[in-house]
Amino acid sequence: MEEPQRGIRAAYSDSTITVYQAYRPEIGQPAAREGRFPAAWKRDRMTWIKPSFLWMMYRCGWGTKAGQETVLAVEIGRDGFEWALRHACLSGYVRGVHPDRATWQRQLKRAPTRAQWDPERDLRLQPLPYRSLQLGLSGEAVRRYADEWTVSIRDVTPLAHEIHALVSGGDLDSAARLLPQERPYPLGDEDLAHRLGAQRPGSPDDSRPIGVAETAG
């Protein structure tokens, strides 16, 4: 099946979905140990969650970048994730989604969640011709994420290092077998899919965000 230009791909169950973040060890290790973010984790700033494991690997350099040495798999309730989607505004103005740029700017200021589409990555972290979602959470969304949605937190840094070692050694087949099993996440609401700029296979790529950075945290 042809990949949609923009679609949510994730590991999920009937009740939860896994998203990824990377932190310095002083934050990431206590979070994984306690299953909750520690007091040092700042709730007053935007935090980005990524359903795509390989996009997280691209962002954190397989857990080697400074301040991103501990890679976390955060399992959250699907109800919470879908609340974040419903309350999201695209991080860039899109013709056909927003009536005009001024309306988009007002929506962006009010929204507790920011949706951004970035090129998905392959095992060598090269860009693929389709995009995956990341969500920036702020204000109410951050509090809900930490206090209500989070079911479990796992340290997957060893997995990241193991896959990276296989890729570096040229054993892509073995590396691929270790990847989390991600699949298209259902967006049954057509209006929500439109507001997020999501696409289904075969849809024309006519809603590319304008001026969206691809390096959100």
Rank of each mutant, 00 (worst) to 15 (best):
M1S: 11
E3N: 13
P4L: 05
P4K: 09
R6F: 12
A11F: 08
A11Q: 15
S13E: 12
S13K: 02
D14M: 03
I17N: 04
A22M: 03
P25Q: 02
G28C: 01
P30Y: 02
A31Y: 02
A32W: 10
R33D: 14
R36Y: 01
R36N: 04
F37G: 00
P38D: 02
A39E: 10
A40W: 00
A40F: 00
A40C: 03
W41L: 02
K42W: 01
D44R: 12
D44I: 02
T47H: 14
C60P: 01
C60W: 04
W62V: 00
A66G: 13
G67F: 14
T70K: 07
T70W: 05
V71R: 07
A73H: 04
A73T: 05
A73W: 12
V74W: 11
E75N: 12
F81N: 01
W83N: 06
A84V: 01
A84M: 14
L90F: 03
L90V: 04
Y93L: 07
H98Q: 10
P99N: 08
P99Q: 14
T103K: 14
W104L: 10
Q105K: 14
Q107W: 09
L108I: 01
K109V: 12
T113M: 13
W117F: 06
R121N: 03
D122F: 07
D122S: 05
R124G: 08
L125F: 05
P127S: 10
L128M: 15
L128P: 12
P129K: 08
P129H: 10
R131L: 07
G136N: 08
S138D: 13
R143C: 09
A146C: 15
A146H: 01
W149V: 06
T150K: 06
V151F: 03
V151P: 03
S152D: 13
R154Q: 15
R154V: 10
D155S: 09
P158Y: 06
L159C: 09
L159Q: 13
I163S: 07
H164L: 01
V167M: 01
G170W: 00
A175M: 06
A175C: 07
R183Q: 12
L187M: 08
E190H: 08
E190N: 09
E190T: 12
E190L: 13
L192C: 10
A193Q: 03
A193R: 15
A198G: 10
R200H: 08
D205T: 02
S207E: 10
I210V: 15
I210L: 15
G211A: 08
G211Q: 11
V212Q: 14
A216H: 15
